[in-house]
């Protein structure tokens, strides 16, 4: 194509984007869980897209070019932050040609900034010999509905800032959404409170659960991965098995996107149950309270409550 042709097409593109009157705030969320929370807060005022499949490991998502296209048309990009998406999101932001949702843009929101408490914030020297750790804090906070409530409030404020005409609606709705999330959290916490100290011991595959452990007052005795992101070795698995036998841990907890073979063997040898839970909300068919409820139910059943 000739250079003039390119210019003409470019001008047409500008015209097309100007003519595109926007009705709803277009929100893109990196995970199904963030999408569900944004949908709850924004309701009919927003149009939400999840950038990754709920069955995908959010650490490793393909930066497919169609996501560049989505971000090109996005008003608000909601990410987990804490380097969870560092392997794929920055490139999409750079290619999207939409400065609003780029780093530092008004339409880029890292949900961890809403939290009052972050687990496992690195103090002292961070070394990769510790595995693939997130120095800013553990990014898997949305397994705790209390954190979900804080994110809802934060998103309400952010949406109010981006769409001032509906500011009051976002802020009010965020309050009621947060209250609902908290009440789900309290109900489950109360159920787990009836468990004995021995019944509260779990083994997890990846270090995804500090927030959930805190919420349900559980104790993690070991992780199947020796270090975050490092595949289990036979020697380490043997240690995990010994620890399970010694502590009587009755559940191995993992997200569905991690391999199951080792966990299955471990659970059967230790007489424990393998609890495989979704890593994110099935956005569109499931709500956030249903999602955290599902995880808590599965755990409660395995722990023999």
């Amino acid at each position: 194509m000739s250079f003039t042709g390119v210019i003409v097409l470019a001008l047409l593109g500008v015209l097309a984007s100007v003519g595109d009157a926007k009705a709803k705030v277009r929100v893109a969320a990196t995970t199904g869980t963030l999408a569900a929370i944004a949908g709850d807060v924004g309701g009919e005022l927003v149009e939400v897209t999840a950038l990754s499949a709920p069955t995908e490991d959010p650490h490793y998502v393909d930066a497919r070019p169609n996501l560049v296209l989505t971000l090109n048309h996005t008003d608000l990009l909601v990410a987990t932050g804490l380097e969870l998406e560092v392997g794929w999101l920055p490139n999409l932001q750079k290619s999207a040609r939409n400065p609003e949702i780029g780093p530092g843009g008004r339409g880029y929101y890292e949900a961890h900034t809403a939290l009052s408490h972050l687990a496992e914030v690195a103090t002292g020297r961070v070394d990769r010999a510790q595995g693939d750790i997130h120095a800013g804090g553990n990014p898997h906070y949305l397994y705790d509905p209390r954190a979900g409530a804080e994110v809802a409030i934060g998103l309400g404020t952010k949406l109010a800032e981006l769409d001032p005409a509906n500011a009051a609606t976002y802020v009010t709705r965020a309050q009621s959404v947060a209250a609902k999330y908290r009440s789900v959290g309290e109900t489950q916490r109360a159920r787990f409170a009836a468990l004995s100290a021995e019944q509260r011991r779990v083994v997890s595959y990846h270090a995804s659960w500090p927030y959930l452990l805190d919420w349900l007052a559980l104790e993690q005795v070991e992780t199947v991965e020796p270090k975050p992101g490092i595949a289990p070795s036979p020697a380490h698995v043997a240690t995990v098995l010994q620890r399970m036998r010694a502590t009587g841990a009755k559940a191995v907890l993992q997200e569905e996107f991690y391999p199951r073979g080792t966990s299955e063997k471990l659970s059967s040898l230790a007489g424990a149950k393998l609890v495989v839970v979704p890593g994110a909300v099935r956005f569109g068919t499931q709500t956030y309270p249903e999602f955290v409820g599902q995880i808590a139910e599965a755990l409660h059943a395995a722990l023999g409550g």
């Binding site: 939290l115 972050l118 914030v121 103090t123």
Partner: peptide, 25 residues
């Protein structure tokens, strides 16, 4: 990130300030 939180939105949400958050550009 130091803008005061709107009064209505302050229900328990204090902005977290992770020392090592790598988003300073």
């Amino acid at each position: 990130g130091s803008a005061p939180a709107p009064a209505a939105a302050s229900g328990g949400a204090k902005p977290a300030a992770p020392a090592a958050a790598g988003n300073t550009g």
